[in-house]
């Protein structure tokens, strides 16, 4: 646990100093939401169908920028090798990076939500707690897969391109189910009416978090 906290703390100090990741993720989120809001003339009929997809695509794209940046910091001066030289279990390094990414993504998402509510004309009485729960589960999926695939792409020349190519297809089940539940909640339905989608999200999170813990050792090593 001490190792995980050290890695998260180190990532936060590093990001707080540069703010590169936050600024790029937040700016990108804002631009996507603004562009979609401008180009889609959303009447109330289709608003609840389209806007959840806009929200989750925003999270996905800005998240991929964050994930890519998170490993750029490790690649700078080959700091990751200093980490790999230490007598710590690779799974703890994965968990440290997973929690760092999870917290960074959640912060950006929490900031994005009010902007989304205002621009898409929702009122703040929507089921925000339930929506936040779905966002939390979806972001665990984003972070677990993203942390693993960022490590895979770390030692490749085309890592900025490779990450989305590997990451986006795998994350589709999270995206589909998170959009489905968010749409249902924005239409006034309850969370319990989406239990199957919720189960898929939870199962995905457990599978990919476990896969990350088990496989990180093999993907992070230089070959």
């Amino acid at each position: 646990m001490k190792t995980i906290i050290s890695i998260v703390r180190k990532d936060f100090i590093s990001e707080f100093r540069s703010r590169d990741m936050f600024i790029s993720m937040f700016t990108f989120s804002l631009i996507i939401i603004f562009v979609f809001n401008l180009v889609l003339d959303l009447t109330s009929n289709i608003k609840n169908i389209v806007s959840p997809a806009v929200l989750w695509i925003t999270f996905l794209f800005s998240g991929s920028i964050g994930l890519s940046r998170s490993y750029s910091l490790e690649k700078e001066s080959e700091a990751i090798k200093g980490l790999l030289l230490a007598p710590v279990d690779r799974s703890l390094i994965y968990m440290g990076k997973f929690f760092s990414n999870l917290i960074f993504l959640l912060i950006i998402e929490i900031i994005t939500i009010p902007i989304f509510i205002i621009l898409f004309n929702y009122d703040f009485s929507i089921k925000i707690i339930e929506i936040m729960l779905v966002i939390f589960l979806g972001t665990i999926g984003f972070s677990s897969v993203g942390t693993l695939f960022s490590a895979i792409s770390l030692n490749t020349r085309l890592r900025e391109v490779l990450l989305p190519i590997l990451y986006f297809p795998i994350i589709i089940p999270v995206l589909l189910n998170a959009v489905r539940i968010t749409r249902s909640l924005l239409s006034g339905e309850s969370l319990s009416s989406n239990s199957s989608s919720l189960q898929v999200l939870i199962a995905f999170d457990i599978i990919f978090l476990s896969a990350g813990i088990l496989l990180y050792e093999y993907v992070i090593e230089e070959s």
Binding site: K2, T3, S6, K10, I13, S14, E15, R17, S18, L73, E76, S77, E78, A79, K81, G82, L83, L85, A86, P87, V88
Partner: peptide, 27 residues
């Protein structure tokens, strides 16, 4: 073992002290 390469294996946005405290914690 300790390993020094021609790359420093350090975090550029941390101070020397923060880097060393971080790595000392891992060991």
């Amino acid at each position: 073992i300790g390993f020094v390469s021609h790359e420093p294996f350090l975090y550029e946005n941390l101070s020397a002290l923060e880097n060393l405290v971080f790595f000392a914690g891992l060991y």
